[in-house]
């Protein structure tokens, strides 16, 4: 009995790497962030508990950045979704689909900065896109899409970068829809489009939700692509945070922004879990 108890206690040591990782790397960062947002861990002056940083946070500046982050994240994830479904369905029908699939995965391995340069070249003032559009007489003067006020450049780059990730998740979900079930549907009078909305879409909905929410959070928290391709103002919250910390040396405000980013992400994960629970319950 005694020996067994002892072994049992030693067993807890096995948790150390995982627990240590969470406590020291994530927990400490989280703790520092919360503490700093409340005025502690001051690098330049006295520590003092205060809500002042939180009160200052909710300025016009912050909301502009928040709305911009939400806009880009929402649009990028929805555009990706809208592109990826037809993409999956057409890849599925192509000869040599394995090759096509691996070609489509390439952006997954390309760093964001390089993706920005690539997209930058395509949408530059005298880049490929403008050249083609001018030649086709769709436009009469080049569009300036890079660092444009609306964020088209950043959006395009995000879509380009995130499609492979979504493709990965959705393609396997769509492949898993049984062919005989689709045959049964066609047999009963449903055309391909109808069948997609009646069967394929609802059955793959949980996977689509995971992919969309994860893309949303990735884009929402993005720093690089918005910095390089996005508007000068507003930008993502990550950029605002960076500016607060490094340009203005205001680590407390940066910490407040960080807290809000974590909270927003958690809200979206919760929202996703709830939504997919609802949908999964309704589907199966």
């Amino acid at each position: 009995m005694k020996g067994r108890k002892k072994r049992f206690q030693w067993g807890y040591l096995l948790l150390a790497p995982a627990l240590g990782f969470i406590l020291f790397l994530e927990g400490s960062a989280l703790f520092m962030m919360i503490a700093q947002s409340l005025g502690f861990l001051n690098y330049t002056g006295e520590d003092a508990f205060t809500f002042a940083h939180w009160q200052q946070l909710f300025s016009r500046n912050f909301f502009d950045n928040l709305m911009y982050s939400l806009k880009i994240a929402l649009l990028a994830s929805l555009i990706c979704l809208a592109v990826v479904y037809p993409l999956c369905l057409s890849i599925q029908k192509m000869p040599g689909k394995k090759t096509w699939l691996s070609l489509w995965k390439i952006p997954l391995f390309i760093p964001a900065l390089i993706a920005c340069s690539l997209m930058g070249n395509i949408i530059a003032y005298n880049g490929a896109l403008n050249t083609v559009l001018l030649a086709l007489k769709v436009i009469d003067k080049p569009l300036s899409l890079r660092n444009d006020a609306w964020g088209v450049g950043a959006l395009l780059t995000q879509v380009w970068k995130n499609i492979p990730f979504m493709l990965l998740i959705l393609y396997s979900a769509i492949e898993a829809v049984r062919k005989d079930v689709l045959d049964a549907g066609r047999n009963l009078g449903a055309g391909r489009v109808r069948l997609f909305f009646e069967v394929t879409l609802p059955v793959t909905m949980p996977s689509a939700l995971v992919a969309t929410i994860m893309t949303f959070i990735k884009v929402f928290n993005d720093y690089t692509i918005s910095k390089v391709m996005g508007p000068i103002y507003p930008s993502t919250l990550s950029n605002l945070m960076h500016k607060a910390a490094y340009t203005l040396n205001d680590w407390h405000s940066a910490a407040c922004i960080g807290c809000l980013m974590v909270v927003t992400s958690i809200i979206f994960v919760k929202l996703y879990t709830w939504l997919s629970d609802q949908i999964t319950r309704r589907l199966s």
């Binding site: 005989d180 049964a184 549907g185 059955v203």
Partner: peptide
């Protein structure tokens, strides 16, 4: 009617 029934799971 299919061997696998092929009912719509959703």
């Amino acid at each position: 009617c299919f061997q696998s029934y092929a009912l719509f799971p959703n």
